[in-house]
Amino acid sequence: MKKMILTTTALALTAGMALAQSQTIRMGTEGAYPPYNFLNDKGEVDGFERELGDELCTRAELTCEWVTTDWDGIIPNLVSGNYDTIIAGMSITAERDEVIDFTQNYIPPAASAYVALSADVDVASGVISAQASTIQAGYVAESGATLLEFATPEETVASVRNGEADAVFADKDYLVPIVEESGGALTFVAEDVQLGGGVGMGLRESDTELRDKFDAAIQSMKDDGTLNTLIVKWFGEDVDTF
């Protein structure tokens, strides 16, 4: 255990030195979680976090480029220096904060929700799908229901459609357009659940100067109202704002 901690620390320090020598900040995202982030028809990162991240880089006077990665390796790849930030719909949790650092949140704590094919699904004892390594998966694992994990959010919804799972549990912001576009085939069930401390940018614990720059940029967008405008643009009028 001690050796593992020392190795992680060494990787973080090495990555921090590489950042200090580089003028370009690499923004790591999943590219598969609309409307937070997704790949558009040109294969480019798009969505709320692309627009937000570009604005934050402008305000922080940083040159930034975008990097996509699978969700299940998104924290290890940050620590090892494959990119310099995580901006990927990641909720701030105490467990994650032991490994990486976070900026202040740029989305308030939001609801997680269940979606199923039938309104009478028992989410307390049924088979519930969730994306692996998410706060929703952790919640289901402790709820008494049977957890069925998938690598991507699309697979969690597909598991409900094909009968593998009774319901999917995910960010409600992600599920709303899917339910609306299902033509009545999918429906919200049970009550919403509040999880996490909002969504923030993840950074290596050694990159305090970079964290402070993004923190200041996020705060400036909160202060002038542009962050709320951006949230409403991508998530709709009924979304929680600052």
Rank of each mutant, 00 (worst) to 15 (best):
E95I: 08
E95T: 10
R96P: 06
R96Y: 05
V99S: 15
V99L: 06
I100K: 07
D101P: 03
D101T: 15
T103H: 09
T103N: 12
T103Q: 14
Q104W: 11
Y106P: 04
I107V: 14
I107E: 11
I107D: 12
P108K: 13
P109D: 08
P109H: 14
A110H: 12
A110V: 14
A110P: 03
S112I: 02
S112Y: 09
A113Y: 02
Y114W: 12
Y114F: 15
A116C: 13
L117I: 10
L117V: 13
A119I: 02
D122F: 05
D122Q: 09
A124K: 10
S125Q: 14
S125C: 03
V127L: 02
V127E: 03
I128P: 01
A130T: 00
Q131F: 03
Q131P: 04
A132F: 04
A132S: 15
S133Q: 11
S133Y: 10
S133T: 01
I135S: 00
I135H: 01
Q136C: 15
Q136V: 12
A137R: 06
A137E: 10
A137Y: 02
A137L: 04
V140W: 00
A141H: 02
A141N: 05
E142G: 14
E142L: 14
S143V: 13
G144V: 14
A145Q: 04
T146N: 01
T146F: 00
L147K: 07
L148W: 05
E149W: 00
F150L: 05
F150K: 07
T156R: 03
T156P: 01
V157S: 00
V157E: 00
V157W: 00
V160K: 01
V160I: 09
V160S: 03
R161H: 08
R161C: 06
N162K: 10
E164M: 13
D166P: 08
D166G: 07
F169A: 04
A170P: 01
D171C: 02
K172G: 07
K172P: 09
D173V: 04
D173M: 06
Y174H: 15
L175C: 11
V179L: 13
V179S: 09
E180W: 09
E181S: 15
E181Q: 15
S182L: 12
S182I: 05
S182H: 09
G183K: 05
G183L: 09
G184H: 06
A185P: 03
T187Q: 15
T187K: 09
T187F: 13
F188C: 07
V189S: 12
A190N: 07
D192V: 11
V193H: 03
